[in-house]
Simulated scan of single mutants.
Amino acid sequence: MDAYIRSIRFKRELVQSFRQHPFDLPWLGDFHALDLHPKVTFFVGENGSGKSTLLEAIAVAWGFNPEGGSKNFRFSTEATHSHLHEFLTLVKGVRRPKDGFFLRAESFYNVATEVASLGVGAAYGEDALHEQSHGESFMSLVTHRFRGKGLYILDEPEAALSPSRQLSLLSRLHDLVRDDSQIIIATHSPILMAYPDAWIYTLGDQGLERVQYEDTEHFRITRDFLKHPERFLRQLLEP
């Protein structure tokens, strides 16, 4: 399967100053390019590391609305996205997706409002998105609106989901992958990033590098805490 986006190139020569945001992000200092898995790629890192900034830039460079939705969505409630997308070149594959969606947790409410305003709620399930819980509306979107053979860019989709729902999402993502979809995700969830054979990039002060699942901080901290919760709690809570 050829990727819809094979790789990303950073046009460093156009940057006037690496002291201004978003170019002051540490990993951008040595960043030139990265390859994307034709199926699933994850971006992980601490809060403020810039993983969502990179994901957003890829989405906007592809033509998605900065606040989320499909390419047909053109609403704007507050312009908070960076202009990093102007400095990226997306190296596309020979095939074109038949579907696509940019989902970001922090502005999903605005997307749901736009869906209702446009009168296209039927494509997102029987129940209106605003009439469901946050987690239920997320799953309704992914289940009904994501049609396959598409490019799906997801920013922290686990934000509204319980662990069991994250497992359901993982299963749904696998269905989409088997239907010729490419998925790019920024996440903190060790459940989601366990997807088999996915590529995981970690962003941080040491740069941007591809790592194995077991080497992510998310996996190691979760594993160690579940093995010895009393030890962790004693260190954290005792004076």
Rank of each mutant, 00 (worst) to 15 (best):
Glu67Gln: 14
Tyr124His: 05
Ala123Gly: 10
Arg145Leu: 08
Phe146Ser: 03
Glu131Pro: 03
Val177Arg: 04
Leu118Arg: 15
Trp27Thr: 05
Phe232Lys: 05
Thr216Phe: 01
Ile191Thr: 15
Asp30Ile: 07
Phe101Asp: 06
Asp35Val: 12
Pro97Arg: 05
Phe31Gln: 03
Leu55Asp: 07
Phe42Lys: 06
Ala112Asp: 03
Leu34Gln: 11
Glu217Asp: 12
Asn110Lys: 13
Val44Met: 06
Arg220Trp: 06
Asp215Trp: 03
Ala112Thr: 04
Gly148Val: 09
Ser168Ala: 14
Ala105Leu: 01
Gly135Lys: 02
Asp24Leu: 08
Ser7Trp: 00
Val15Leu: 03
Arg104Asp: 08
His174Leu: 11
Val91Trp: 04
Lys71Arg: 15
Leu14Met: 12
His81Val: 07
Trp199Lys: 15
Phe42Ile: 01
His144Ile: 08
Tyr109Ala: 14
Ile200Lys: 02
Glu136Ser: 14
Val40Leu: 09
Ser140Trp: 01
Phe101Trp: 11
Phe101Cys: 07
Lys227Cys: 05
Ala194Tyr: 08
Asn65Glu: 03
Glu86Ser: 13
Arg145Ala: 15
Gln166Asp: 05
Arg210Lys: 15
Arg9Cys: 10
Ser171Ile: 10
Ile191Leu: 13
Gly135Ile: 08
Ala198Trp: 05
Glu78Lys: 15
Lys227Phe: 04
Gln132Leu: 15
Gly204His: 06
His130Arg: 13
Leu161Glu: 01
Gln132Thr: 03
Phe43Lys: 11
Asp224Tyr: 07
Gly207Ile: 08
Gly204Tyr: 03
Ala159Met: 10
Ala198Met: 09
Gly207Asn: 05
Ser181Lys: 08
Val115Ile: 13
His188Asn: 11
Met1Leu: 11
Val211Asn: 01
Ser7Ala: 15
Gly63Val: 03
Glu217Ala: 15
Leu36Glu: 09
Gln235Ser: 14
His32Ile: 09
Gly125Asp: 01
Ser117Ile: 02
Ala194His: 11
Thr41Asn: 06
Gly48Asn: 01
Phe43Gln: 08
Arg172Ala: 08
Leu161Asn: 07
Tyr201Cys: 11
Gly69Thr: 02
Phe138Gly: 04
Pro66Thr: 11
Gly93Gln: 09
Asp224Gly: 07
Gln20Glu: 13
Glu136Arg: 12
Phe42Gln: 06
Leu88Glu: 01
Ser76Phe: 07
His85Ser: 12
Leu34Val: 10
Phe18Leu: 09
Asp30Pro: 02
Arg19Ala: 14
Ser162Tyr: 12
Glu106Cys: 09
Ala61Asp: 08
Glu209Arg: 13
Asp35Pro: 04
Ala123Arg: 12
Trp62Leu: 07
Gly119Asn: 01
Asp205Arg: 13
Thr216Gln: 07
Arg145Glu: 09
Leu167Trp: 11
Leu176Gln: 07
Gln166Gly: 10
